[in-house]
């Protein structure tokens, strides 16, 4: 009897969790939560400080590096053609590793395997610059994480983490970003958590930053131990968030408060 009660209870919770998800038609980019001044910053590429990283990335794209003395451009030629739409499909499965990698990890894999250069540290200016330059080539493209059946278990794991309560505040991502996105936390809008503009320039950071930086900050905010940069859990979460934002246009490099 008690067991049956538990099953009913857990079924109720499952329904509750599913119904909390945001309907397709109500999905909104973080952009739509911003003040007009901040939107204007994103709308004009000559005001958007994220473009400074894009400019640096463009230079790095052509710079020879590593033992093989090759530049990104030596294999991929003009990024405007070769990288168009690419960022909209990340994280994607790396065949050799058999698990998803995000754009930063893909750039570093390219560095270590094809250029035989040292990987760039997470959040370093160079890695952010290259990521921003590549991501900008997909601006306006619809987010479309691949339909690779290999991805499915990782999306499921990411979703599990999104729903999981954790930290001293005992909150899951879903408690804010599915259930309370129409409200505010102190003065700030709680957004729906769609990663449409990464890497993006946060005014609070006074810098460009990756989605992993944002996720780690959220985890610290709920007083949980943040995963290390590059941890599989973070990539799975990124993957779930991208699948959740499927079809929304990419804005990189975006501005956020």
């Amino acid at each position: 009897m008690r067991l049956a009660g538990l099953i009913v209870l857990s079924a109720l919770f499952a329904v509750d969790a599913a119904s909390a998800e945001i309907p397709q038609a109500e999905r909104r980019s973080g952009y739509s939560f911003m003040a007009p001044d901040t939107r204007a910053m994103q709308d004009d590429d000559t005001i958007n400080p994220g473009m400074l990283w894009v400019l640096d990335g463009e230079k790095l794209w052509a710079r020879k590096s590593g033992v093989t003395n090759k530049a990104c451009a030596d294999c991929h030629q003009d990024a405007r053609a070769s990288m168009k739409g690419v960022a909209a499909h990340y994280p994607a499965i790396d065949k050799a590793l058999g698990r998803p990698v995000d754009l930063e990890q893909r750039i570093n894999l390219c560095r270590t395997t094809h250029q035989q250069a040292t990987p760039l540290p997470y959040e370093s200016r160079e890695l952010l610059a290259l990521t921003a330059f590549v991501a900008q080539q997909s601006r306006g493209a619809a987010i479309e994480p691949g339909n690779d059946p290999q991805l499915a278990p990782f999306v499921a794991k990411g979703r599990e983490l999104f729903m999981q309560r954790q930290g001293q505040l005992n909150l899951g991502c879903t408690n804010c970003h599915d259930e309370n996105w129409d409200k505010r936390l102190a003065g700030s809008a709680i957004t729906q958590g769609h990663p449409t503009g990464y890497p993006l320039y946060r005014l609070e950071w006074q810098s460009l930053g990756s989605l992993q930086r944002r996720l780690r900050a959220c985890m610290t905010g709920i007083r949980a131990q943040a995963y290390d940069y590059g941890a599989p859990e973070l990539v799975e979460l990124e993957l779930y968030l991208m699948s959740r934002a499927r079809g929304m246009p990419l804005e990189a490099p975006a501005i956020r408060p």
Binding site: D45, T46, M51, L52, L55, D56, K59, E126
Partner: peptide
């Protein structure tokens, strides 16, 4: 690396 964006 330092870059500038100019709009004239």
């Amino acid at each position: 690396m330092a870059s500038a964006l100019i709009n004239v």
